[in-house]
Computed example of a mutant assay.
Amino acid sequence: MPATRPPYPPEFRAEAVRLVRESGKKLQQIAANLGVSEARLRKWVRQADIDAGQRPGWTTAEREELNRLRRENRILREERAILKKPPPSSLGRPAGAGSGVLVRRAGEGASPCGDLVPCAGRLDKRLRRNGDGAGYRSGPAKTQN
């Protein structure tokens, strides 16, 4: 991909348009002398005619305002989309009341834990079953002498 060059200054464009209109030379010759493409020079002349009111179309000022408003509109849409999203909560749980955390009184309904989360009553059984139980004993703590 060819490297892009910075835009030509407005003074250079105005002088190129003046040369096309006043010199009597062909547009191709003027473009070659200035080192710009014929299509670019033709576009500058057409835009100068529009800005002068000699031709219908969007003036440079109108086009700049349209681009500014489109850019502003895009930013506002992005901000609105961000504000529509729910705020992040801790631990990846939904925020607010009724956040999905189940609270159960003793003897009330089935265990919400299932096999995924060890409940208090089954914790010591799981630890004994998964290993030799070293470091964990149910009942009163024993002291070493």
Rank of each mutant, 00 (worst) to 15 (best):
Q144C: 08
L19G: 15
A134S: 01
G139P: 08
N33M: 12
P140L: 01
L91R: 14
R40W: 07
A31N: 05
R80M: 04
S23N: 15
P56K: 04
R71Y: 04
E79T: 00
F12Y: 11
P88W: 02
G57F: 04
V17W: 01
L34S: 05
R46K: 10
R104S: 12
N145Q: 11
L83F: 13
L41V: 14
R104L: 08
L41N: 13
G24L: 11
E78L: 06
L102P: 11
P118D: 12
P87Y: 04
R21Q: 04
P86S: 12
L127V: 09
F12K: 13
I75P: 00
S99T: 05
K84G: 09
A134N: 03
L123E: 15
V20S: 14
A120W: 15
L27C: 15
T59R: 03
K43N: 06
R126Q: 14
S99A: 07
W44Y: 04
K125M: 11
R21Y: 02
G133H: 03
A61S: 03
R42Y: 07
E79F: 00
G96S: 11
S99L: 03
R55N: 06
V36Y: 13
R55A: 05
A110M: 08
A31W: 00
R71T: 02
P7N: 00
R77S: 02
C113P: 10
E108W: 03
S90C: 04
E64L: 11
L19F: 13
R137I: 08
A14S: 01
R70A: 03
M1I: 06
R80S: 07
R46V: 05
F12N: 08
R68Y: 00
E62R: 10
R55F: 03
N130P: 15
E38W: 06
A106H: 07
N145D: 12
I82R: 06
G98F: 10
L91V: 13
L116F: 13
R18E: 12
V101G: 11
L34R: 10
R46I: 07
T60V: 04
S23A: 15
Q29S: 13
E65R: 06
I30R: 01
P2F: 06
D124R: 07
C119N: 14
I75W: 02
P112T: 10
R42E: 07
A110L: 12
V20F: 10
K85V: 14
L102S: 12
A14R: 03
C119F: 15
G131D: 09
G24D: 14
